[in-house]
């Protein structure tokens, strides 16, 4: 029913949509790095994203894809992983509480450990607890497509080999969570994509969006 679908203690309106209360926003603010005002601003963004293709209270994968890549079509390795890591309840959609929790990791003030852990989950494509050479290769191939580059297989293998060797402290041919933690702690710039500077300023970024939308 509605309540199993709806997070927190939100109210269901006549259209079977979640109406978040001030208390919901306060709880989410309490659980994350955001203030209540920032959670409210994120709700504006969430409403836009969750109604872009299907007008409900959840972000479907196609809606996330549309927002990130301006097209709902095609297959994207990263999109699949980002979506899965955001979808904590694993019910195939991103709900507002999941959205706020996941974005909190990308806050400039979020602890480094959270960012390290989140990145590991993303790159552990098959969720085996290790980042394996095959997974690194899949990610490199996906990025080469993005840059419209083609590398011969031996060069590709060399990049994969170097990547594993750089981080694989215990020499078992794959990157464990501990390997990863030690490696990115030495090379924090590798986590640059785990921080969204916008989140420090979310209320003004999104109020300018609301203003532009209303102006249209």
């Amino acid at each position: 029913g509605c309540f199993s679908y709806c997070p927190c203690i939100s109210i269901i309106d006549q259209n079977h949509k979640c109406t978040y209360t001030a208390k919901d926003f306060a709880i989410l603010a309490d659980e994350t790095r955001f203030t209540v005002e920032e959670v409210e601003a994120l709700h504006v963004l969430f409403k836009r994203l969750s109604s872009s293709l299907i007008d409900d209270d959840s972000i479907h994968k196609e809606e996330l894809q549309l927002a990130l890549f301006q097209t709902p079509y095609g297959k994207n390795l990263f999109l699949d992983r980002v979506f899965d890591v955001f979808d904590q309840k694993r019910n195939g959609v991103i709900e507002f509480d999941e959205f706020v929790h996941a974005l909190s990791v990308f806050h400039p003030y979020a602890p480094m450990d959270e960012k390290i852990d989140f990145a590991f989950k993303l790159y552990d494509l098959r969720q085996t607890g290790f980042i394996e050479p095959e997974e690194v290769k899949l990610m490199v191939v996906a990025i080469l497509i993005e840059f419209d580059m083609n590398l011969p297989d031996d060069l590709l293998e060399a990049i994969v080999h170097k990547t594993i060797a750089d981080a694989d402290k215990d020499n078992d041919g794959k990157i464990s969570r501990e390997d990863w933690k030690a490696f990115v702690s030495r090379n924090p710039s590798l986590l640059i994509n785990m921080t969204l500077p916008y989140l420090k300023d979310i209320t003004s970024v999104l109020s300018s969006f609301v203003f532009k939308t209303e102006a249209k």
Binding site: N76, F78, Y123, A167, L190, N193, Y198
Partner: peptide, 25 residues
């Protein structure tokens, strides 16, 4: 020299792996 490159450097700078677009409009 791409061989001297660590794949995670590429990934961290990749556009397809950047959530900033969520805030673009």
């Amino acid at each position: 020299k791409p061989v001297s490159m660590n794949a995670f450097e590429l990934i961290s700078r990749s556009q397809s792996f950047n959530l900033e677009n969520l805030f673009e409009k």
